[in-house]
Design a protein around this nucleic acid. Structure first.
Lengths: 222, 222, 222, 222
DNA sequence: AATGAATGAGCCTTCATTCAT
DNA sequence: GATGAATGAAGGCTCATTCAT
C-alpha cells in the first residue's frame, strides 16, 4: 500500500518534475535579467531538461513567461490582502508593515525570491504581459496605498495628487531594487539582508509618514 | 606634442560627420531601449552609414556605448555644478530647482534628450560602464543632494541615514521614468509634457521638503 | 490457422476506434497538403488521440501514409474494374464515363474524397510509396485507357504512341486538379461543384474523342 | 589598364559571386523539391557560402524565392513574345512551335533548367508568389494560346470554352513534367532528352490540332 | 576614411520519434 | 491498448563582428 502510494507519488512528481522545474528556473532567470535577456536554452540547461521542453509544456517562451507570472500571482495574492485588510492597527503602523512586506517581496534574496522582482522588472522593461500584471498585482497595491494615505492625511486629496502620494512611497521602495548596483557603489554600507531591508523600510516609512503628517498639518492649518 | 595630441583628439571628436552622426544616433537608440535592445544595424541605418562603421570608428558596440556616455558627461557636467553651486537662494528652493532639472533631463521628450535617460537606464540595467557613470555623473549629484539635505535638516545625520534621504528623493523622481508605462495605466491623467513634469516635480519637492522639515522638527524637538 | 489470421487481420483493420479514426483523418490531411506538409500532431489532434498513437499503431509517419494508401486501394479497386469492364456501351460513351468518374474522384470536395487526390498528389510529389501506387492504382487505369483508345482508333498504334494517347487524356484531367489555383485566377468562372466537374469532363471527352476520331480518319485515309 | 580592368571585373564578379551563386543554386533547389522542401542551409551549402548570406543578400528565404522568380522572368520573358509574335507562319505550325518551346523550358535537363520548372511547380504547390507568376508568366502564355485556338478553329467560342481549349493543350504538356516519375514506370521507353521532348511535343501538337480541326468541322458542319 | 560583403554563434521554434508507465 | 512526457535534430532567422578592398 505504502509502496504503491510512494510510487504513485513519485510518478506524479516525476511527471510534473520537468514542468515545475522549468517554471521555477524560468522565474529565477527572468528575474535576473528580464524577459529578453533570458534564453530558453539557459533555462532548460539549468533545469536539466531538453530545450524543446518549454515548447511542449508551455508552447513558447512568451507563454512560459506568462505562466511564471500567473504562478507568481497565485503565490502572493492570497497572502497579500489577508495581512493588510486588517484595519485594527493604527494606519501609520499598517503603512510600515506594507512597506516592509513590499520591500521584502522585492529584495529578499531567499530561494524563490522572484515573485516581487518580476513585477518590479516588468515596470521598467514592460512586455505584453504588463496589462495583466497591472491588473492582478499592481493596481490592488496601488489602491491599498491610496486608501492608507487618505486615512493618514485625514482628508481625500484630488485624484491625481492622491496617486502621486502613492507613487512617492512606492518609488522610494523600488529605488532600492532598481538602483541596487548604484547604491552598492555610492554607499557600500547599505545591506540587503533581512536587517538591511528592515532598516531601509523603516527609513522609508519614517520619511513618508513625516511627509504625510506635515502635509496634512499644512493643509489643515493653511 | 601635447598640442598635436589635442588636435588629434579634437579631430577625432569633431571631424567626420560619420562619427558624430553615429554618436548622436546611438545616444537616441540607447536611450530608447537600452544597450541590449539596441542593434548596431539600426543605429547605422538611422545614421545613414555603413553597418561596419561602428566597429571601424569605435571598435565595438560596447565601446560606442562608452563613447556616447563620455560625450554625455562632456555635455552635461560643465553646466551641472555651475548652476547648482550657487548658494544664494534658500535651500528649499534649490532642492525644488534640482528636482525639476533632474526630472526634465530624464523625462523631457525633446530631441537630444538622452543625457539623463542613459543615466537612469544604467541604474536599472547596468553595463560594464556603470562604474564610470557613477563616478562621473551620479556621485556628484548624490553629494550635492546630501549637502542640501544637511542644510535643510539643520544637522548632519549619520552617513547611511543621510544617503537614504537622498535615495528617497531621487527614488521618487526616477519612478516617473522607470514606471512610466505603469503610471500611464494606473492614472492616465498624469502627463509627461513640460507642465506635467513641472507638476510631478512640484509634488516631489513638497513631499520631500515636508518630510525633511518634520524629521528635523522631530529630531530637534525629541 | 487461416481463420485466426483473418480474424486478427479484421480485428486490426476494423477494431480500435483510434486506429480507424487515425486512418481517416490522415487520409484527409495527406490529401489536403501532401505527405510532407502534413504533421503527425495535426492528424492526431484532429483524430482526438495522443500524438504517440501514430507510432504505436503504424510505426511511423511513412507507414501510416502507406496504410492510408492501402486502405484507399481496398476501397476503390473492387468497384473500379467492375464498373468499367462492362463493354456493352459504345466506346466513346465509356470514355466519357471514365473521364467523368476519374475527375470526380480527384476533384470532388465531398468528405471522404481523398481516394483520388492522394493518387494525383503522389504523381507530382512522389514518395517511396509511388511504386506500389503505380502498380495498384495507376497502371490498371492506364491499361484500361489504352484499350479504350485502341477501340476508338480502330487500330493499335505503336506502344509508345498508344501510351501518349492515354497521357494526353489523363493530362487534361489532372490539370484541373493540379492547376486549380491558377485556373481560379485565369478564369474565375470555372467551378468545381458537381456541375462544373461535369462540364470540364464533357469538354475533355469532346476534345479527346475529336482528336482520336480525326487521327483515326487521317491514318486510315493516309 | 587591362590589368586594372581585369581586377575591377574580378572585384565585381567576386562581390556578386555569392549573390549570383545563391540565386542559381536556389533556383535549382527550389525547382527540385519546391519551396517548402528546400532549406536555406542546403542552398548555402551547395553555393559554398555562409548560412546567413541569404538573409544578408535577400532578407529571407521567401524573398530569395521571389528574387529567383523575378530573375527567371527576366531571362525568359524577353525571348518569349519575340519568337511567337511572328504571325507569318501557318497557325498550326505556330502551335507546334509553342508546344515544343514550352515543353523544352519545362523539361530540359540542361544546366539552368529551372526557369520553366518553377512555374510548373508553383501551379501545383502555390506560394504567396503565385499571383505575380500568373500575371508575369502564365497569363501571357494563356492569352497567346487562346488567340491561336481562335485562329485554328476559325471562330471564337464562348469565353469559358475557349479557356478550356487552352487548358487541354497545356495540361497535356505539363503532364510530362508533373507525372514524369509515373511515366518512367508506366512506359520506360519515354525519354526526356531533346529528341524525346521533340517526340512528346509532336504528339501533343498532333493530338491537339486534330481535336481542334475536328471540333471546328463539327461546329461548322453542325 | 569608409564600405559592401561575408561570417559564425546563437536565438526560438517545430517536428517525428521514443520513453516510461 | 494507449498515453503524457520528454527528446534530438533540424529549421529559419538575427546579431555583432571581420574581411577585402
Amino acid at each position: 500500500m505504502e509502496g504503491k502510494a510512494d510510487v504513485a507519488g513519485k510518478v506524479k512528481d516525476l511527471n510534473g518534475k520537468t514542468r515545475a522545474s522549468l517554471l521555477h528556473m524560468a522565474g529565477e532567470v527572468f528575474a535576473e535579467g528580464g524577459f529578453h535577456a533570458a534564453t530558453v536554452r539557459d533555462i532548460c540547461r539549468r533545469a536539466r531538461v531538453n530545450a524543446a521542453s518549454i515548447n511542449y509544456h508551455f508552447g513558447s517562451k512568451g507563454e512560459l513567461y506568462a505562466a511564471v507570472l500567473e504562478y507568481s500571482y497565485a503565490q502572493t495574492l492570497p497572502e497579500f490582502p489577508g495581512a493588510l485588510k486588517d484595519r485594527s492597527g493604527p494606519p501609520g503602523e499598517r503603512l510600515s508593515l506594507f512597506i516592509r512586506g513590499f520591500m521584502q517581496s522585492v529584495l529578499d534574496e531567499g530561494r524563490p525570491a522572484w515573485y516581487g522582482k518580476l513585477m518590479a522588472r516588468e515596470m521598467v522593461e514592460p512586455t505584453s504581459a504588463l496589462d495583466r500584471i497591472v491588473d492582478k498585482a499592481i493596481r490592488p497595491r496601488h489602491k491599498f496605498l491610496r486608501e492608507l494615505v487618505v486615512e493618514l492625511l485625514g482628508y481625500r486629496p484630488a485624484d491625481e495628487e492622491l496617486s502621486r502620494m502613492a507613487f512617492s512611497i512606492i518609488g522610494q521602495c523600488l529605488f532600492y531594487y532598481h538602483a541596487r548596483q548604484v547604491i552598492a557603489r555610492l554607499n557600500p554600507s547599505v545591506r540587503y539582508d533581512t536587517r538591511g531591508i528592515g532598516r531601509a523600510a523603516a527609513h522609508i516609512a519614517l520619511f513618508s509618514l513625516s511627509a504625510l503628517k506635515a502635509i496634512s498639518r499644512g493643509k489643515k492649518g493653511g
